[in-house]
Amino acid sequence: MSTASAKSLSGYQYARRVVLFLLLLVAFGALLFVGSYPERGEFHEFVEAFGVSLIGVAIVGRLWCTLYIGGRKSAEIVSDGPYSIVRNPLYVFSAIGAAGAGAQTGSVVVALIFGIVTALAFIIVARREETFLHEKFGAAFDSYCARVPRILPKFSLYRDSATIVVTPKRLYTTFFDSLVFFTAMPVFEFVEHLQIHGILPVLLRLP
Rank of each mutant, 00 (worst) to 15 (best):
L9C: 04
L204C: 09
A139I: 13
M185L: 15
A162S: 12
Y83R: 01
A6G: 10
A103W: 04
L112W: 11
A6S: 11
L63C: 10
D80R: 08
F114D: 03
P82E: 04
I113F: 09
V191S: 02
L112V: 14
Q13H: 10
F122P: 02
R40P: 00
Y144D: 09
A126Q: 02
T118H: 09
D80L: 02
L54V: 03
L22A: 14
A27K: 00
F141G: 06
A6I: 09
G51Q: 00
A15L: 14
A30M: 15
Y158A: 11
G97I: 01
D160I: 05
S53M: 07
E192T: 13
V110T: 15
E130V: 06
R159E: 05
K7S: 06
F137Q: 05
P186W: 08
V117K: 06
G71L: 12
F175M: 11
R62M: 09
V60G: 05
A30K: 11
D142G: 01
E192Q: 13
A6F: 08
V180T: 12
L194C: 12
L90I: 15
T174N: 10
V92P: 06
Y158P: 06
V52F: 11
Y144N: 05
I199T: 12
E45Y: 12
E45M: 11
T174H: 08
A184M: 08
